[in-house]
Simulated scan of single mutants.
Amino acid sequence: MVRLSRLTRQALLCFLAVGCVMASAPSRADGTGWESVKKAGVLRCGAAVAPPYVMRDPKTGEYSGFFSELCRNFGQNVLKVKVEFVDTTWDNIVAGLQSDKWDLSMALNQTPEREKAVSFSAPATDYNVSFVYNKNNPKIPKSAHSVAEIDKPGVTIAVMSGTAQDKAISAVIKQAQIMRLPGNDETRLALMSKRADLLADANITNMLLTEAHPEWAVAIQPNPPLAQQEVAFGLRKETPASDVAVLNNYVNEQVKSGAVNRLIKTSVQAMLVTNK
């Protein structure tokens, strides 16, 4: 039997370990950015529900909403690949992108905190936080137009956990109670069942609620605007600048041509029909 020196054995073990890692590595490690996506033949879009940005039919699992359409069109028409939507939550939307569970995070608010972790495309639209309440709720002043007027003991504000609006109200609400819930359906139900006095959400999302229920739903648009931000696609930090430029060109073209506004209107109309 041939005896191997200690140094030789260590080298052999290192070689075998590296070989195992390379064999188990995902195929996307073979390339970077859109090169990797094209090799895989599929663009993975991280999807956390937030109507009308990202919507999911509970019966079919099909995705709609204007950011879903933007991601679908980018994959099919620009990269020429299939598009796959990966279910996630707003608590995991950044972490999943960092760990390569998907290639783009949809409808991500560009905040300083997130900019440390991921990169952003050109913005597709802007965003701020509004509040919806039942006009018959005596706790809420009918002429309220500021956070201070609703930040009172005994007032409960429902919000989707981990979202930009969660972070925004957490920074300014000092006395009211914040009820953090996992999704849009849960926050709306909390308001409609009167477990919550207010619902904090994106201005465009809350517009859907007030238009669907004009008989009771009233919106408060804080003055000055709360958490005015841009909404874009999130990408991993290591995405090459040339690949970011490809996505930026696509987004800017969609905004400039009016396609984004048309998609927003279509998504809003679809939501209103669904909520009737």
Score class of each variant (00 low, 15 high):
residue 17 A to G: 09
residue 21 V to H: 03
residue 12 L to R: 09
residue 218 V to A: 09
residue 215 E to T: 12
residue 263 L to E: 11
residue 80 K to R: 15
residue 131 F to G: 10
residue 196 A to M: 03
residue 262 R to H: 13
residue 69 E to I: 08
residue 47 A to F: 07
residue 146 S to H: 07
residue 214 P to Y: 01
residue 258 G to P: 02
residue 246 V to H: 07
residue 182 P to K: 07
residue 118 V to D: 02
residue 66 F to H: 11
residue 214 P to F: 01
residue 191 L to N: 07
residue 177 Q to M: 06
residue 275 N to C: 11
residue 12 L to A: 13
residue 91 D to N: 07
residue 251 V to W: 03
residue 63 Y to A: 08
residue 29 A to G: 00
residue 29 A to I: 12
residue 31 G to K: 02
residue 177 Q to V: 15
residue 192 M to D: 09
residue 113 E to V: 15
residue 73 N to D: 14
residue 141 P to Q: 10
residue 191 L to R: 06
residue 61 G to R: 02
residue 40 A to H: 03
residue 103 D to K: 03
residue 248 N to E: 07
residue 35 E to I: 05
residue 14 C to D: 12
residue 81 V to D: 09
residue 66 F to S: 06
residue 228 Q to E: 11
residue 254 Q to V: 02
residue 118 V to G: 02
residue 54 V to F: 05
residue 250 Y to T: 09
residue 237 K to I: 09
residue 49 V to R: 00
residue 255 V to M: 03
residue 203 N to P: 00
residue 159 V to Y: 09
residue 258 G to M: 10
residue 90 W to P: 04
residue 4 L to C: 00
residue 107 A to H: 00
residue 6 R to T: 13
residue 113 E to R: 12
residue 46 G to P: 00
residue 263 L to Q: 13
residue 146 S to D: 14
residue 132 V to C: 14
residue 53 Y to I: 01
residue 239 T to G: 05
residue 110 Q to M: 13
residue 162 G to S: 06
residue 229 Q to L: 13
residue 52 P to V: 03
residue 81 V to F: 01
residue 144 A to K: 04
residue 144 A to I: 11
residue 215 E to P: 08
residue 134 N to F: 10
residue 276 K to G: 12
residue 157 I to E: 04
residue 273 V to M: 02
residue 101 K to H: 14
